[in-house]
């Protein structure tokens, strides 16, 4: 299995009407500062040797000043020396919300399956997730959300639930239409008025 390029993933998502947070590869602290353009950013190291980016300290959040950006670039690239080949990516900072994971995989028996769970750092700890075989419709998406123990935390109003349901149906379409082995959108940050896909991991 090989990890697809981040921006290839972004392009694929876009093709299915799924937007992701603005991101750029950078090769120097100066470039990162230029991309930030005065706004807070997130900096991450991408390498197929690192599955748990935040656990391994490969993510720096809410970098506001040029100084913060420079020192984050320095420390992240230092940590990444054992993870070669690696890339550094900067992204707009999400305004925050509830983190979920939306994923997929090709099951040898049943074909493409889609997963929704409480996301971010809670994925492994609470193992609160639901799986369905693709394609799913809006009823399936609704029942996926409802079957989570954290359903009420994740969707605090009906608009929010509808939005997440639509997103799940789109991801299911993408999974069915794409030759991939594994997919992680983790986390997807659910806001009151939308969502931010802040990490894309596709294995082919």
């Amino acid at each position: 299995m090989t990890l697809s390029d981040y921006f290839e993933g972004e392009k694929l998502l876009k093709k299915y009407g799924i937007s992701s947070i603005r991101s750029w590869y950078v090769s120097s602290a100066e470039e990162a500062i230029k991309r930030a353009d005065g706004n807070p950013i997130v900096m991450k190291v991408i390498s197929d040797k690192a599955l748990h980016k935040s656990k391994s300290g490969l993510v720096a959040l809410d970098l506001k000043t040029d100084k913060e950006i420079s020192s984050a670039f320095k420390s992240l690239t230092a940590k990444a020396q054992t993870l070669k080949p690696y890339k550094v990516i900067v992204q707009e900072m999400s305004k925050g919300g509830i983190e979920v994971i939306i994923g997929g995989k090709t099951d040898p028996q049943f074909g493409k399956v889609i997963l929704l769970g409480l996301g971010g750092i809670y994925v492994e700890a609470f193992k609160d997730f639901a799986i369905r075989v693709c394609p799913i419709d809006d009823k399936d998406a609704g029942s996926m959300i409802d079957s989570l123990r954290s359903a009420e935390v994740i969707t605090y109003n009906s608009e929010n639930k509808r939005m997440l349901g639509e997103l799940l149906v789109k991801v299911s379409k993408m999974l069915n239409g794409t030759d991939l082995k594994e997919l992680d959108l983790n986390p997807v940050i659910l806001r009151k008025d939308g969502y931010d896909v802040v990490d894309i991991r596709i294995l082919k």
Partner: peptide, 21 residues
């Protein structure tokens, strides 16, 4: 596995999801 999804969605979990669905 190389993804969170695949590490969560083991064989039984997929069965369970299909039964629920």
């Amino acid at each position: 596995t190389l993804s969170h999804t695949a590490s969560l969605a083991g064989d039984y979990q997929v069965y369970e999801g299909i039964f629920q669905q």
